[in-house]
Amino acid sequence: MADGPTWKEYPMAATISEPGSATGQNTGDWRSERPVRNPEKCDKCGICWIYCPDAALFMDEEGFYEVDLYHCKGCGICARECGKDAIEMIEEGE
């Protein structure tokens, strides 16, 4: 424990003053499968977005929902819930 802040350098009571600092956390490396969207099937309905437990989808300029692979844990809810079967889970590394 030689490295790291001293007791004087921590905020009082370890209170965190940067809201949402968890965003810096790479939870994408938990993934064994990743969602891949087929733009031809996707109708931009946003079902994938509202059902993501990790807020790992975001709307692009064209209104499509893109996967934020830094945070996506690869649960596959988006693929399962997509009414258009527009999302496929493919194994990482493929």
């Binding site: 965003t23 810096g24 939870t27 938990w30 437990p53 807020a55 809810i77």
Partner: peptide, 14 residues
């Protein structure tokens, strides 16, 4: 925020 440590596919975080 994204980046929380919930399990994959957590219904509670959702």
């Amino acid at each position: 925020a994204e980046g929380h440590r919930g399990c994959q596919g957590c219904g509670e975080a959702l």
